[in-house]
């Protein structure tokens, strides 16, 4: 079977994906597909291939501008089906055009990479605003969210800077992964690995009522515009936004 019919497999981490891509670039191979191992299904027309990688391939990283790596990382966090190939071609072109690759929107991979990374950063930005913490009985803050893309790490880093002296847990409901922060470090876990005691603090209801009444009061009734409200805060967010729960 020809090399161009290979599906290259990686373990699902960003580091390993970069290694596979750099290895492919070094070997001048064009992949049919790059895929997470667990997503691979037997395929008659293509052959799975796991390259033997060593740390050295990461040397290529220094030829790639930081902002290009960041865009690629955001694409990696997306739920796009073909994200690995998009990153491969995006990085391939960035070796050729360097920083200026971001202006080559006429190239499909560039256009896709920029669109997808923007979608991810937009979604993360929305959740930086919409996430709602509740205070639990044993003095930690707890929040759940539902996002299309895997933005838990972006959110965790945001709140680490913002709430460094609190203990908190953020849960991505869709992926069933959590981030726990203990005033020092972030720990990423899978839902099945931990049992949390989710009982609200008795004062929590009061604070929530206070917020809901502020939310109602601050609207000017002569200017009511529900459509505009919904454009900025689409319904899919409501189940996780305290003040909108009753609106559903």
């Amino acid at each position: 079977m020809k090399e161009s019919n290979f599906i290259y497999l990686y373990n699902g981490t960003w580091d390993e994906l970069l290694k596979v891509i750099f290895w492919l670039l070094k070997e001048k191979r064009k992949p049919l597909q790059i895929l997470e191992e667990i997503k691979y299904e037997n395929n008659l027309l293509a052959k799975p291939f796991k390259p033997i990688l060593d740390q050295k391939v990461l040397i290529l990283k220094k030829y790639i501008p930081k902002e290009i790596l960041k865009i690629s990382y955001y694409v990696f966090l997306s739920s796009s089906q073909e994200k690995e190939l998009i990153i491969y071609y995006f990085l391939l072109n960035s070796l050729k055009y360097h920083k200026e690759v971001i202006y080559m929107r006429n190239l499909r991979c560039v256009n896709k990479a920029l669109m997808i990374s923007k979608r991810v950063s937009r979604e993360a930005h929305k959740w930086k605003g919409f996430l709602r913490f509740k205070e639990m009985q044993n003095q930690f803050l707890y929040a759940e969210f539902n996002a299309d893309n895997n933005i838990l790490e972006i959110l965790a880093n945001h709140f680490k800077k913002r709430l460094p002296k609190e203990n908190w847990v953020i849960k991505d409901e869709k992926r069933d992964i959590l981030c726990i922060y203990d005033q020092k470090k972030l720990y990423f876990l899978e839902g099945k690995d931990i049992q949390l005691d989710l009982n609200y603090n008795n004062k929590e209801k009061n604070t929530e009522e206070l917020w809901k009444s502020f939310f109602k009061t601050i609207a000017i009734k002569e200017r009511e515009n529900r459509k505009c409200q919904q454009n900025f805060m689409p319904k899919k967010y409501w189940q996780n936004i305290l003040e909108m729960e009753s609106e559903q």
């Binding site: 919409f130 939310f215 601050i218 609207a219 200017r223 009511e224 515009n225 505009c228 900025f232």
Partner: peptide
């Protein structure tokens, strides 16, 4: 860049 945390029923950012 600023962050909007909610939108009131008049469509304004909170």
């Amino acid at each position: 860049s600023g962050i909007c945390h909610s939108f009131s029923s008049d469509g304004r950012c909170i």
